[in-house]
Amino acid sequence: MNADNPIISIQNVHKFFGTFKALDDVSLTVDAGQKVVVIGPSGSGKSTLLRTINRLETISSGTIVVDGQDINAPSSDINLIRAEVGMVFQSFNLFRHKSVLDNLTLAPIKLKKEPRLEAERRAMELLEKVGMVDKAESYPVQLSGGQQQRVAIARALAMNPKIMLFDEPTSALDPEMIGEVLDVMVTLAREGMTMVVVTHEMGFAREVADSVVFMDEGKIVEIAPPNRFFDHPAHTRTQRFLEQIL
C-alpha cells in the first residue's frame, strides 16, 4: 500500500464539547484499502473521531485530510467529500418515508442526477449483494434490525464511496442478526473497500482488520495489527480493557 499517500490523514486533532475534551491530540492515518477497527470504553471518543472524518463533528484544532482534501478548509466542498465517504450508523437511520429501493436511489438521483432506471438497476445490484432484493418494495418499519442495517450499508454504497465508516453497526441488533450484517461487512472488506469500523465484535476485528486502534479518554492509546493487539497488547490500559470484554 502507498504509505506516502494515505486516503485519510488525521493530524493532532482536538475536539471540545464546551470545556469537555472529547478528542485529545489524535493522529491517525489510513491508507487506501486499509481496514481499521476502533475499540475503547464508552465515552472514549470513538464516535466523535469517526464523525470528524466526514465533518458531522467539526474539530476544534488539527487537520483532517480525506482523499487529498483538507475537509475543514473553507475552499473544500464538504458535500462532495461526504458523498465519497459512506457512513453506517448504530441506529440505521433509514429514511422512514421511503421504500428500500427509494432509500438507495434518492441520493444518486438527486445528487448525481442519475437517470431513475439506471439508479434502480444499480440499487438492485447492491440489494442483491446484501441479500435484500426481495424486500426492495418494503418500508423500513417492516424490516428487522439486521435487514435495516444491511439496507443502510447498501444505501451508503449507492454513492460509490471510496471510504466506509461504521459506528457500532451491530450494537443495536439482536444477537442472532449480528452475523448477517458482519458477513456483508466482511465481503465489502474482501473487495478492497477502505473501512474504519467502531465495533466491539472482536472476531470481526481479528479476521478483517489491518490495524486495531484503542482509544481511552479521548486519546489513542495504542495502534497495532490485530494479532499483536489481542495477544500482546503493549499498554496496561489496553490489557485491562481486553480482560474486561473478552
Binding site: 466526514n54 458531522l56 458535500n79 462532495l80 461526504r82 458523498a83 465517504v85 459512506g86 457512513m87 450508523f89 441506529s91 437511520n93 433509514l94 429514511f95 422512514r96 418515508h97 434518492l106 441520493a107 438527486k110 445528487l111 443502510a152 444505501r155 451508503a156 454513492m159
Partner: peptide, 27 residues
C-alpha cells in the same frame, strides 16, 4: 424528526436544505 435522519442525509452528500426538503419535511 430524529436527528439521525438529517445525519444520514448529510453523510450521503446532501446539504442541509436538501436534507430538510427531501427527508425531514416529508416525514
Amino acid at each position: 424528526i430524529d436527528d439521525g435522519q438529517t445525519e444520514a442525509s448529510l453523510s450521503l452528500g446532501f446539504n442541509r436544505s436538501q436534507a430538510m426538503r427531501y427527508v425531514v419535511l416529508p416525514q
